[in-house]
Nucleic acid binder design. Structure first.
Length: 578
RNA sequence: CGGGGCGUAGCUCAGCCUGGUAGAGCGCACGGUUCGGGACCGUGAGGCCGGAGGUUCAAGUCCUCUCGCCCCGACCA
């Protein structure tokens, strides 16, 4: 491809709304252009990288036995009523209506459609298992789209769905696809980790996320350096916390604590550790307010709480709601003497405490010397703890480390959530009808490319891993008015093209400085410079974007040298993946 | 949903407080000198100042409404 005929316009200035480096570089290198909040055009240079990833994904999905199809982006509301998600999915679901006022959604995911397809076509255990996937545009109306392609509203996603007679068959496919995902991210040369995850709004039992390690990642993850345990903090567990010493008093006593509404203030005022205070948070659940108890120095994991209540849409209660539920203003709620109707859920971190401090359910007062058995009614015990770095690994003696990651893939064992509600059944060898077991497997295409840039860049611009690079080679002609240089560049371009090398040929009539800086910005892995000076010696310059090391090679036979460098680079990625 | 900020040339921004003929840098076009790490000189094109309404002799500037974009928060008691 000749740059002079290509659609690639770089910019020196960063658009004001680009915050993270991948977004800035994608805009500056002419990969994407924003059309509206969270909605982007993929320009030719960016599209090539996305296409590269999609080919890797197709190859590995096929290897895992999945079959490609393509489903509609616009889906009738009836399917979503059937699955119940018209209600459950919330405001992220973009709803539309047609000229007849019939309701539709722009699909954020395709469980309903695929289940509808399969329930019509598949009726026998002999047709199972099957795995289907598509690569398609999705729309989720995010509260706050940001970071360019990392959290867009419209985005490209590979989504796969598998159908099975039973759990065992599902487990086999789940494992095959898990391995396919590992191969995909390894093939891209990304530093990633697989973690245990919460299954959230999609539903189901078992789920893993694939995280690309990056400081700008939106997800917090813990990992044990001693064993292979890794989990999203939404899901992460730890061992029982070491019990703090019992508080100084053992008899229940009300003490004045004017104005002390935070754990820190109360602990300071009463001269106890924050771990000897119990925090009472009131959440609004599906059946009204719920009081939750957690040790004062720790925090409640709302995802765990939602899961234990069996309700996706919980929120912290408003001050007025807290007062109505507990009779106390914000900051003084406590588990002693709560109204009988108010459900109390306690985190396990509270269990070993003795002689602790809680709010007194009246303004400016707390109880000290609280005893769990004697003074507190707990309806349910649960693991509600937000786990973080430094906590004990639940599997071994290690200590968890915390880091941030970009969620690029998420796989779920769905079970029969959709097949049951939508009547996707098969007949077994006894002629009996059963709901199919399902799995679903998502992989963010744009997000993965953005993640690759987060991991691969320097001050000059993008440093592409070879497998995702829009072009393998940038052929840079330094003097476009020098006949020898032009002739040698043209010939090299022809030879490389014929040899099947993906080459971008910078034949633009620009100054060298401009070309070099653009070369760094767009990050093509192997740069070839043809300039008058070295051409006199019959030589051209090769350099890797990654290392910036330069070497001179003879023009004659240059194609072979170039192919060798590319092979070495390719081997580097696949050789050290994972 | 709450709070804040910003919409002026393709891009980044100034001008608005204190109303009076629309600006800069980069980019773009043309001419010249340059040419292995974002050159220099000269000339030029390009804007109904997001939209609507109002105040005024006069609005980019003041007022009201509206649309868009960005950031922060959404209560850890």
């Amino acid at each position: 491809m000749r740059w002079s005929r290509y659609y690639l316009f770089t910019t020196r200035e960063v658009p004001r709304d680009a915050e993270v480096v991948s977004h800035q570089l994608m805009v500056r290198s002419g990969m994407v252009k924003k059309l509206a909040a969270g909605i982007y055009s993929y320009l030719p240079f960016g599209w090539r990288s996305l296409a590269k990833l999609m080919e890797i994904v197709r190859r590995e999905m096929a290897a895992a036995g999945a079959v490609e199809l393509s489903m509609p982006a616009v889906q009738p509301a009836e399917l979503w009523h059937e699955s119940g998600r018209w209600q459950d999915y919330g405001r992220e679901l973009l709803r539309l209506s047609d000229r007849h006022d019939r309701d539709f959604v722009f699909g954020p995911t395709h469980e309903e459609v695929i289940t509808d397809i399969v329930r019509h076509d598949v009726s026998s255990y002999r047709q199972l298992p099957i795995s289907l996937y598509q690569i398609q545009v999705k729309f989720r109306d995010e509260i706050r789209p940001r970071f360019g392609l990392m959290r867009g509203r419209e985005f490209l996603m590979k989504d796969a769905y598998s159908f099975h007679t039973d759990d065992a068959s599902l487990a086999v496919t789940y494992e095959e696809i898990r391995q396919a995902y590992c191969r995909i991210f390894e093939a891209c040369g990304l530093d990633y980790t697989m973690v245990e995850a919460d299954s959230g709004a999609i539903g189901g039992s078992h789920s893993h996320e694939f995280m690309v390690v990056a400081e700008t990642g939106e997800s917090a993850v813990v990992r044990c350096p001693e064993c292979d345990y890794a989990a999203n903090v939404e899901k992460a567990e730890t061992r029982a916390l070491p019990a703090p010493p019992a508080g100084p008093e053992s008899g229940l006593r009300k003490v004045p604590t004017p104005g002390a509404t935070s754990v820190e203030e109360v602990a300071a005022l009463l001269e106890v550790a924050t771990s000897q205070v119990v925090k009472t948070l009131v959440y609004m659940g599906p059946d009204g307010p719920v009081a939750t108890l957690v040790r004062g120095d720790r925090e409640v994991n709302e995802v765990k709480l939602a899961a234990s209540l069996g309700a996706p849409g919980i929120r912290l209660a408003e001050p007025a709601e807290v007062e109505e539920a507990t009779g106390a203003p914000l900051g003084f709620a406590g588990p002693v003497g709560l109204p009988d109707g108010l459900r109390v859920v306690a985190d396990e971190s509270v269990r070993p405490l003795a002689g602790f401090v809680v709010g007194a359910n009246e303004a400016d007062a707390h109880y000290v010397g609280v005893d769990l058995e004697r003074d507190v009614r707990v309806d349910d015990w649960a693991d509600l703890l937000l786990v973080g770095g430094g906590d004990a690994c639940p599997r071994c003696d290690g200590k968890l480390e915390e880091f941030r990651g970009i969620e690029v893939g998420h796989i779920f064992m769905l079970g029969d959530k959709y097949s049951k509600s939508m009547g996707c059944t098969y007949l077994d060898d006894q002629g009996e009808s059963h709901a199919m077991q399902m799995g679903c497997y998502g992989l963010g295409i744009g997000r993965t490319v953005a993640a690759a840039i987060e991991q691969g860049h320097d001050d000059g611009g993008i440093v592409w891993p070879l497998p995702l690079a829009p072009f393998e080679v940038l052929l840079l002609s330094l003097q476009t008015r020098n006949e020898e240089v032009v002739a040698a560049s043209n010939q090299l371009y022809d030879e490389l093209t014929r040899a099947g090398v993906e080459v971008l040929y910078d034949d633009r009539d620009e100054r060298p400085g401009v070309k070099f800086n653009d070369a760094d910005l767009i990050g093509v892995p192997l740069r070839i410079v043809v300039g008058a000076r070295s051409l006199k010696e019959g030589q051209i310059e090769l350099s890797l974007r990654r290392t910036k090391e330069k070497e001179m090679v003879a023009v004659d036979g240059a194609v072979e040298s170039i192919r060798e460098r590319l092979e070495a680079e390719r081997a580097r990625v696949t050789g050290s993946g994972g």
